[in-house]
């Protein structure tokens, strides 16, 4: 996989400071920051637009947005928290443009699975959901987008609730409520309740 052979030992705050400091080390620091978060950004972009080429463009646009914030960029939260809404926006925008170019309706941009009879994305990249776990895929896809989003951030990405609240710019209580409702549906649905069996 492309990337530096030796990951930079500096944390994100230190890398941001190095970029702000300018000079010869700025570009190297940005490169380290990019390779550290590229794969997660790509994963997020795939989640929202479901197509690799669009996701790659979205990631590229996202990091262009990042480096253009320098100098003067201040990291007040985790970098992933900052990155999430940027990637989401760019991925949905890329998907919208692609649909428009193909003459398809561009509604429900926030829900990559919307509009499909079975709740699955039309994109082949999501056909893996036909494999084992189809019931899970159907149920998750049927969740309201807001609940599905926090479910993925919490349990797939492993973000703390507070970070999710910051990434989505919503109150912490709202995050807790959405997670709670999503988990309750998973507990009660016949397709997934067996996972909770002792």
């Amino acid at each position: 996989m492309p990337g530096p052979a030796h990951p930079d030992p500096r944390d994100d705050q230190q890398l941001v400071a190095a970029i702000n400091a300018g000079g010869d080390g700025a570009a190297d620091a940005f490169e380290a920051l990019y390779y550290r978060h590229r794969d997660y950004a790509l994963k997020l972009a795939m989640r929202f637009c479901g197509e690799r080429s669009l996701a790659l463009d979205a990631v590229q646009d996202s990091f262009v947005y990042v480096y253009k914030k320098f100098p003067g960029f201040t990291l007040t939260a985790k970098f992933t928290t900052f990155l999430y809404p940027v990637v989401k926006h760019n991925a949905l925008t890329a998907k919208k443009k692609a649909r428009r170019a193909q003459g398809q309706p561009t509604g429900s941009e926030g829900d990559p699975l919307a509009g499909q009879p079975d709740g699955r994305a039309a994109d082949p990249a999501r056909d893996h959901a036909d494999a084992p776990g189809t019931g899970v895929a159907r149920l998750v896809a049927s969740l309201p987008e807001a609940q599905r989003e926090v479910l993925m951030l919490r349990f797939v990405d492993g973000l703390p609730l507070e970070e999710i609240a910051r990434a989505l710019d919503i109150p912490l209580g709202t995050v807790k409520t959405r997670v709670h409702h999503a988990v309750r549906k998973l507990r009660e649905d016949p397709a997934t309740k067996n996972y909770f069996a002792p």
Binding site: E31, R52, L56, A125, A129, G133
Partner: peptide
């Protein structure tokens, strides 16, 4: 169930060297 959610999320997409190089050059 978390594993099933990860499956739902899909496999990690492969990055693109061309995209990397282009972006880093711009940066």
């Amino acid at each position: 169930l978390i594993d099933a959610l990860r499956d739902f999320d899909g496999p990690a997409a492969l990055p693109s060297v061309e995209h990397d190089d282009a972006l880093l050059a711009q940066a």
